[in-house]
Design a protein around this nucleic acid. Structure first.
Lengths: 201, 201
DNA sequence: ATAGATTACGAACGATCGTTTGCTAAATGG
DNA sequence: CCATTTAGCAAACGATCGTTCGTAATCTAT
């Protein structure tokens, strides 16, 4: 009843599964992902879905990887070519807020949801979340240090504190948008993030 | 094989179920709650568990209500008798951070987890989360207004902005503790919350 | 003392979970 | 051109899901 696809088309199938998994997981959580539901959404058999990954956990990891890729492409890559420092930090701030505001993920920030969901468990998925957050944290802290070294930010700026506050504001913005539909939240987040690095709003 | 209990003892049974449900949901999420697992943990039958609530959703609502009660008792009630204003805001800040630090919920802040889990859905559970957060928000904003009126905080303090930032810091602290075991996070959160209301750390 | 309400049980319901097994059919490699 | 690999399906696996039903046992109220 179903003809086989070429190797290239099979990759497209895999991508379609991952894309759908990201969308579903952003609203229902990575644990709420279901092989059967994905199969139904994509008009495939359950075996056809799971065959690309081997297990549900590897499917979750693929969805996580794709979500991290989306975040990287929409927030980091547009500003990556700028020199490290205050300018790029402000660009990151705007891109980050715009990303959360844009509704790329129907259920809100994928990483925030995954972090909240897996923060009390163990395993590869949790490890992947921790690693992704760690990489992003390193990016932010590096730019804070560069900005301080260049005299663009107060000399007593604490990179770890900036990361703590920025990450918190991103989570707060995500909650305000998803839970309350608060249209004033993006402005609040931008102002708070600027103030956190000593830049007047 | 199992004798019936008195009305008073039945309430104890119900309380035991809710207490266990709160603990499980704080790590595995409200959707991860399972009648069968609860029954096994409490050496009861599934019917005996669900009989007290009627449905899983009402069990989730009972767990949410209990978690909100715990938060209220440990964070709000100890400071409720103080007069509204800057003093009480600082006391709330300390109690809030201490609460998250204390590990009352094995899986971290129950409300934060429930908010992240249900922010993309609809129904009574989501409504309950929104309502609980709204009540807490009203408490914070009222005290900010009182402190401004008393001249204890800068006249241009924005109550909604203070709530946004405090709530964000609480989420950030919860993530830092649960996901990274970051022992420096409580201090960071306290400092950030104080700075958010213009109080030097 | 007796009748009714209530707690909790065991058992079963259909549905769905993740996964495995054979199979077909098409694309690929020699 | 033929052998091998591979994508995907249909079907079934045991397990578990939330829920319902009937029943036994005990408390409560008359």
């Amino acid at each position: 009843m179903s003809p086989r696809k070429s190797a290239a088309a099979a990759l497209e199938t895999r991508d379609a599964i991952v894309a759908r998994a990201v969308a579903v997981a952003s609203t229902d959580g990575l644990e709420g992902l279901t092989i059967g539901r994905l199969a139904g959404d994509l008009s495939m058999s359950k075996a056809g879905v799971i065959g690309h990954f081997g297990s549900k956990e590897r499917l979750q990891l693929a969805a996580l990887e794709e979500a991290v890729g989306i975040f990287t492409r929409t927030v980091w890559e547009p500003v990556a070519s700028r020199p490290a420092g205050r300018e790029r930090l402000l660009a990151i701030c705007d891109a980050w807020v715009a990303h959360l505001e844009s509704g790329v993920f129907p259920g809100g920030c994928f990483l925030a949801a995954a972090a909240a969901e897996f923060d009390g468990r163990e395993g590869p998925v949790r490890d992947g979340v921790v690693a992704a957050l760690g990489r992003w944290r390193a990016v932010i802290e590096r730019d804070v240090r560069a900005a301080v070294a260049a005299g663009e930010l107060p000399a007593d700026s604490d990179p770890a504190q900036v990361w703590f506050e920025w990450n918190a504001f991103a989570m707060g913005l995500n909650q305000a948008l998803q839970l309350h539909g608060d249209a004033s939240a993006p402005d609040r987040a931008r102002r708070a993030m600027r103030r956190a690095i000593g830049v007047p709003g």
